Computed example of a mutant assay.
Amino acid sequence: MTDALRLVDITEDHLEDVLRIRRQSFGTMASGDRDEWWKYAVKFLEDGRYVGVADGDALVAAARFWNFGQWWSGRRIPVAGVAGVVVSPEYRGRGVGSLLMRGVMRRGVEKGFPLSALYPATTVIYRHLGYEFGGSRYKYSFQSADLRRLGGKDVSIRRAGPDDAQRFLEVASRVNESRRSNGVLIWPLDEIEEWLADEDNTAFLADDGFVLYNWAGDEELSVDELIAGSEQTARALWATVGSGSSIARTVHAYLPPGDPIHLMIETEADKKAEEQRWMLRLLDAPAAIAARGFAPSAVVEVDVRIDDPDVPENSGDWHLTVADGVGELAPAEAADSMRFGPRGLAALYAGTSLNVLRGAGLAKGPATNDAALDAAFAGSASYMLDYF
């Protein structure tokens, strides 16, 4: 690195340079995608969510982050979804990516995001910066004829459009809260409106559920999201997706590993299920603990020490309290504490057991409260339905 390297806010004047670096990083963008990419880039930079690194006057790296919500034990928390991380080839391996990501994390803190998440192209850089695996994105494949036989004909469903976007959010929120879901993203309302306006998508809405799907090939459909608050609604929506089984023989679906469909369908999903892992980081540890839901019956009182060199506000001695499904991380005097770095803290937050964290060297200190912490942070497997 040189002394001329500095963090900058991406402006519209930088976007041609960002496109050049992106082309060097990921290949040529399809001709029809440039306008769409530019439209989103302007949204990010206008909101101060696009950060770059410049060497003198030349832009050499850039990254942006989405303004998402994410469910943790049934409570919705703001999360900065980092995407589009690009570094010019001649600057790779020289610390530019780390400088860029520290700038992104600092901007996330400034904008009030307790959490950050991303899909890693490589885990090395992100682990050095305190990210750790938080969950996965799962893709399953079913025979559409099997889905068609699920029934649910007594459930009223209708085709959905852009005016139903708020209703989609309300249904998803109600179901994810009741299920105490972990990891699931909530997209901005305007994005959902665009999905529902896209003629390539098909969407149906019921009183307590919805489905959004599209063609994935000549004989294949892909379900982006299907959520249902009852068995009969789930059956009706899945049967609707499978209704064209004479043409679309296979249905791919992004689902949690514990989705009810796995217990409802007579034949199991294709054994070649796909899993894509994503990473999590706490940007504001006290705010992240206060916003998260916890197991209602769990009770925890434990002193912890956090060492977070890249977000020093998280570092120090803390007292963690959990009771009645609510957590608090309050400053405390130095004590014989459990000790976590940012990676261990992120993995604990995502429900990784203390036994695994200790085995990986990500948790140290007294083990007296391990069982209580496991019970507090436990829940359903954390997952995402979306790639960003």
Rank of each mutant, 00 (worst) to 15 (best):
E191G: 13
V302Q: 14
I21A: 00
V211R: 00
D270H: 12
V82M: 11
I10F: 05
D218P: 14
R179S: 01
G108E: 05
G161W: 12
A172H: 15
V223D: 00
W238V: 07
G293Y: 10
G151L: 15
M338V: 13
E313P: 01
V85H: 11
A80R: 10
R49I: 00
W38P: 10
W318T: 08
D336R: 06
E90P: 05
R159W: 07
E132P: 02
Y349M: 00
F168E: 06
R292M: 05
D9T: 10
P312V: 09
T250F: 12
R148K: 15
A61H: 04
L5Q: 15
E231S: 14
A371Y: 00
P162N: 10
P188D: 11
A63W: 12
A239D: 06
I306R: 13
A228V: 09
I186M: 13
T240E: 13
L221K: 12
S222T: 09
G103L: 02
D35Y: 06
W37K: 14
L373M: 01
S25T: 04
M1H: 02
H14E: 03
V42R: 15
D190I: 10
A332N: 00
I289S: 07
Q143A: 13
T11M: 03
V96E: 11
S25E: 05
D208A: 08
E46C: 05
G69W: 14
D270T: 07
S243C: 08
N214C: 09
S246Y: 08
W278Y: 08
E333R: 09
D370R: 01
M384T: 10
Y383P: 04
W318C: 07
R159A: 15
P260Q: 04
L282K: 04
A228M: 12
R49A: 05
D336N: 07
L118F: 08
Q24A: 15
Y213Q: 02
D307M: 10
V42F: 10
S31E: 09
R174H: 11
Q232V: 02
A54L: 15
A206F: 08
T368D: 01
G242P: 14
I125M: 03
R148L: 15
W318Q: 13
G325I: 05
L282Q: 03
A334N: 14
E313I: 04
K272E: 08
G258N: 07
Y126W: 02
L362S: 01
R92Q: 11
G84W: 08
P162R: 11
E193S: 02
G108F: 07
G152H: 12
A375I: 07
D270M: 04
I306Y: 11
T368C: 03
R92K: 06
Q276A: 05
A197V: 12
L150E: 04
I265Y: 11
A290N: 10
A290P: 14
D146S: 14
L59S: 06
A4R: 13
